[in-house]
């Protein structure tokens, strides 16, 4: 019997199908999230990859920002629990998990004895330090989000961005560019800005290594390096970092099945 985890975020939709031995049979990431065709497309792709039909799935758990409105799951679980579950499955040594998503940042402390969430914090009211912040900045710089890390590799120095607000930071970036600052240097400043916001949040929880990063932003090495500098610790990137929430949901669905 297969189990399905689907993670409907604000910016992307992810699905993971597990076989009953716990191996991944199919997975997909679609770069549009709740309120779009993203969830259905992610499911279609994951089913095609697994070579199974929806009837073959014994239990489905949905998580993510769009979890409450999505019909078709047996139950819904919060992203915090799912990310922790997904990360711990592959990296049981993790003690602090940071998830940088499209519109929120979560820092999770894992209980070393129980292997589960002990405490967590989330960003409040403001999208600074999130994936959306990077998207806005990429647009101003005329770059693709996926290409940001590569461009920032070539930076010689960091042009600091002092505004926290996304809108003001955008105008600050424009004025740096118009003063002739190099794009890679401004980008390094943007990565530093994200890292500072995230580090501020994580410090409310306390940094307990090993620290594992999940979410789409984890693919950006520029942010990872800046965050390592801010937190003064090495950061490990979760395997298939965008899929940890969906994987956690699928694992929890599997546990549900074993209880039934």
């Amino acid at each position: 019997m297969y189990t399905l985890g689907i993670d409907i975020g604000s910016a992307s939709s992810k699905a993971v199908i597990l076989r009953d031995d716990g191996e991944v049979a199919g997975q997909a990431v679609i770069p549009v999230g709740t309120g779009t065709t993203g969830p259905e497309r992610a499911l279609r792709e994951a089913f095609a990859q697994a070579g199974i039909a929806p009837e073959d799935v014994g239990r489905t758990i949905v998580t993510g920002y769009g979890r409450v409105t999505w019909q078709g799951a047996d139950r819904q679980v919060s992203e915090i629990t799912c990310h922790a579950r997904g990360v711990l499955h592959r990296m049981p040594e993790a003690r602090t998990i940071i998830d940088i998503g499209g519109q929120d940042v979560k820092a999770i402390e894992v209980d070393p004895d129980r292997g589960f969430v002990r405490n967590f914090v989330m960003n409040d009211k403001c999208a600074a330090g999130t994936g959306r912040f990077l998207e806005v900045m990429a647009r101003v710089l005329g770059l693709e989000v996926e290409g940001l890390a590569e461009v920032s590799e070539t930076s010689a120095r960091t042009v600091s961005i002092s505004s926290i607000c996304t809108v003001f930071a955008e105008s600050e970036v424009i004025s740096h560019l118009s003063r002739g600052e190099a794009v890679p240097d401004v980008l390094a400043g943007i990565h530093q800005s994200v890292a500072k916001r995230v580090a501020g949040l994580v410090s409310r929880l306390g940094v307990r290594p090993p620290v594992v990063l999940t979410g789409g932003v984890a693919k950006n090495r520029g942010v990872v390096r800046a965050l390592e500098k801010e937190l003064k610790t090495e950061i490990r990137i979760a395997h298939s970092c965008q899929l940890t929430g969906a994987l956690g949901a699928a694992l929890l669905a599997r546990e549900d099945l074993s209880k039934i």
Binding site: Y65, V68, V77, S78, E79, I80, T81, D104, F116, V117, R118, N119, F120, M122, D124, K125
Partner: peptide, 13 residues
């Protein structure tokens, strides 16, 4: 919306 995620995560925790 934000409160829901926190309360739910807390309840699960």
């Amino acid at each position: 919306e934000q409160a829901r995620t926190r309360l739910q995560s807390f309840a699960e925790m």
